[in-house]
Design a protein around this nucleic acid. Structure first.
Lengths: 166, 166
DNA sequence: CATCTAGCTAAAGTGAATACAAGCCAGAGG
DNA sequence: CCTCTGGCTTGTATTCACTTTAGCTAGATG
């Protein structure tokens, strides 16, 4: 065993017969697994709300932006909100829902990986109040920051919830 | 301004003219932006090392597994290591490098998002020593866990590094 | 009423990612 | 030397993300 794999416990080890079909990573990728979807979410985090801005800033064509934003809206990651500027007709803007905003750690993790391993792009996240860099890190609910080798993957048997989890 | 966007500072606000071309998220997705690549990395974290196991457990065809693993190896996320079981010929196995292992927080973030928003798949990560659930969270180097609205996106001007950053 | 614009939609085509089927190769066992 | 098995490679076909181009629509403006 090396240090970059997690430990499998219970019925997962040996894990020959585990169904990867309901793997939560795979199911998440079914929704946001395309480049355009993740980059649209990035733009939404940057505060972009309008259709044309999404298409232009992500660098995708309008048909793709329309299709992807519709998918994200259908799945509840963004919501279409009517708004009206004075002297303008009513328009739609796209705003992140809680469900969409909850993907922020994933985007931050991808961002910091790119910064670290593909050369600095010159962008950085900082905590507004203290100014320190913000990272996506593994933290257990007791406050530790475990290494990969200290992480267990366990199968929950239906109702058994972990300490501190609703 | 709402609570699910980060604050843009400096030349990014207003951000009309920022080049998304060198966005670290986009560059990361160029390497691991396909479903098969991320699921192969998931399998590597689960401890899978052998070609046929990768293809079967991820649920992709062997040609795709071969192509994707070669890409991951070319970019240094996995390495091909010869090994020999007693009485067997020399074979190759694929092992995560530090570069590949550093994507773990991203996968954990995607995993926990799927668990939370797409219904529980029944898998959970726990800290081996204390047993508490492990999460991918945003943490600044001072130890705070900022909300999205408390995160600034800043442009670093070449050599200016943040406090505490190498 | 005619025009203009933001916000899309429709149609056609390209290239990449994937599946499926088949075959190749290197060596250990017989 | 023949076979078997793990680790691929080489087809062919399909699906899907995406691009390009073009057009449509609701309402503000002239």
């Amino acid at each position: 065993m090396q240090t970059s794999t997690i430990r499998l416990t219970g019925p997962l080890d040996p894990r020959g017969g585990w169904a990867a079909a309901n793997c939560p990573i795979a199911r998440t990728l079914d929704l946001v697994g395309t480049r355009s979807a993740l980059l649209l979410l990035r733009e939404a985090f940057y505060g972009t709300t309008r259709f044309a801005d999404f298409a232009e800033r992500v660098g995708i064509s309008e048909p793709v932006a329309a299709a992807r934003l519709r998918e994200l809206a259908d799945h509840g990651l963004v919501e279409r909100v009517p708004y009206q500027e004075p002297g303008q007709r009513t328009r739609m803007e796209y705003r992140l829902t809680d469900k969409g905003a909850d993907l922020f750690p994933a985007l931050v993790a991808l961002m910091q990986w790119g910064e670290r391993w593909l050369g600095p792009a010159g962008v950085e996240l900082r905590h507004h109040e203290c100014g320190h860099p913000v990272r996506a890190t593994l933290t257990c609910t007791a406050g530790h920051q475990p290494a990969i080798a200290d992480v267990d993957l366990v199968l929950r048997s239906s109702r058994a919830t972990a300490p501190g989890t609703p």
